[in-house]
Design a protein around this nucleic acid. Sequence first.
DNA 1: TTGTATGCGTTATCAA
DNA 2: TTGATAACGCATACAA
Lengths: 362, 362
Amino acid sequence: MRRPPERRVVLADVARLAGTSEATASRALKNDPRIGETTRAAVRAAAAKLGYVPNAAARSLRAKRTHILGLLLDDLADPVHGKVAAGFEAAAASQGHAVFIMTGLHDPDREQRALTAFVEHRADGIALASCVIDPADVHARVPAERVVFVQPDYPRLADGREPPARGVLRSNDAGGFAMTVRHLVEQGYRRLAYVGPGSGSSDALRRAAASDALAGTPAARMRFLDSGVDGWRDPSDVAGALAEDPPDAVVCYDDKLALALLDRLRSTRLLVPDDLAIVGFDGIPAARESRPRLTTVDVPSVELGRRAAEMLMIAGRDGGRLPPSEILPVHLIVGESTPRRTAGERRQAPRVAVASRRGAGE
Amino acid sequence: MRRPPERRVVLADVARLAGTSEATASRALKNDPRIGETTRAAVRAAAAKLGYVPNAAARSLRAKRTHILGLLLDDLADPVHGKVAAGFEAAAASQGHAVFIMTGLHDPDREQRALTAFVEHRADGIALASCVIDPADVHARVPAERVVFVQPDYPRLADGREPPARGVLRSNDAGGFAMTVRHLVEQGYRRLAYVGPGSGSSDALRRAAASDALAGTPAARMRFLDSGVDGWRDPSDVAGALAEDPPDAVVCYDDKLALALLDRLRSTRLLVPDDLAIVGFDGIPAARESRPRLTTVDVPSVELGRRAAEMLMIAGRDGGRLPPSEILPVHLIVGESTPRRTAGERRQAPRVAVASRRGAGE
DNA sequence: TTGTATGCGTTATCAA
DNA sequence: TTGATAACGCATACAA
């Protein structure tokens, strides 16, 4: 087994072995067209023989470009964020860029530290996905041309400003929620409920979108339930509230919550979808395997990541500028959890014996 | 909104404003004990006022330490790998290390390129999780003291060598599979089947472990079915094969496959768990929400990632050495998919009408 | 087509 | 306790 070289071999070593100057060796290795064919071959041979690996730090220091992209996201263990990361990494790697990934975990201080790390390493571009940090705080530390926000709920709805023309990448979450609500209405559901964490700008956006979509249907009503931020871990309370006064259909903040709720509802007298239709959001794989299959909205997470990296790399080229902000389309996936429903179809008597609100089915 | 400084602020600027030399400024900023209190305060004030952010490339170049850790894994979109990444990142960040993440996607060339990137950036340590690259190839390019393999199937079983005393981090997958098989036997199952991709060293290890665990139970039998590498996307063929000649229980390569199979089996006359028990592996969240809840093995993925980063950071301290290799324990999680079974309990007549082998339930 | 010389921003060595 | 100076490894302006 060949060992890695003890003392790191540097360009000077390559140049010496090839019998050229450092400058020539440097040029030869990056295929500068004005280097002779024989010289180039000699340099390449020397580099290969010595196992030369250029030092990125030195290169960056001199060239003022690092070919490093930073990605700050909320949680790598979350499948949706993981897909964003996967798309980002794939796009970056395909163009020879390295990727720093840090997680914010919903903690503004952590996000600030991540930003510091990116700036220290002089990342050519930075993407922030689902971050809680204020965009203004980011722009105070990083030139706007080097940052992309991957954030459907950008900016906070509260301040009413339009998002900037560049540097924002969104999926059409509002449109997606409107689609699910319209779908429910078309399928015959009228008494709807929205269940979400109850806080966070993303929840606010989804809640508003769902609500707005009902504006044209006077007969329809929507009420709102809070699951809490960690509600998807144990939505017993929500399941209980639903069981006490069941709507016709539930619109969930995301698939994670919808699937947990679906599971929890098995402990109540409510049968999905017969008594209660349910829709999720995100299109995670588990939604395709649940029973009943979940009606949901497919969000192009990989694509969001990929596009973010591409935007940053375009802006990173010299003279390059950040492309215009984009909104990527989402797609309704109709599953089995929202069947067509005609008035009065609802079961009058539960098929399943009443179960305790907690614990059954454990 | 404060703008980021136009010309990057460098140490010399800070020193000038603070009225000291660069050397003093440098020392003051890193809390060198021999710098006077007043000087230090002046330097810190100047740095803060100018918004100084040290240049990591310059620092690394000089200090010969980057505080960068590289993580090469198979696929960020996969929840198991995502958890490894999350643990790795959290541990690294907690000690001020930045993390490069690259994905190999089962492609040896890609893995080589990732390795190159890590070496170019002079990562202080490199973790390889579930990679297909030959460890010898890695050690030829990177000193062994800087690499950790996170790989339960290290080394390839075929060559029979013991894994090295340092630099390998494993979960006890073999033990986990033995646990599931023993559990099945204890629950009364005798005719078992293993379903796995049919290739890859990880599959070989799990298959062998499952098989070995049956050695002490002469009455029990195990047969082996191949789902193909992408079998979890559509395990129709496996489901069909199982329906034709059903075993009592199926041991799946992982949860992803088990859940997909569980879903597919709904289109057959086989009822889980009445006709067929099923166990998975990994302990992904969806396994806790499936119907029936999946019996599986919880693998400490986050912990694996965390520990890998810690090992590398320990080895990275000067004079530091890589801690001994470790095997992290796994835990059996008994769900509803493997109920106790007494001989002859099996249903004689299918409750559900025969469905076509494909397509039903779409 | 190639070589020489300089500087990127920081830290470490030595001297004061 | 502080300052001057020399690297670190590479890329480029300029000269040849």
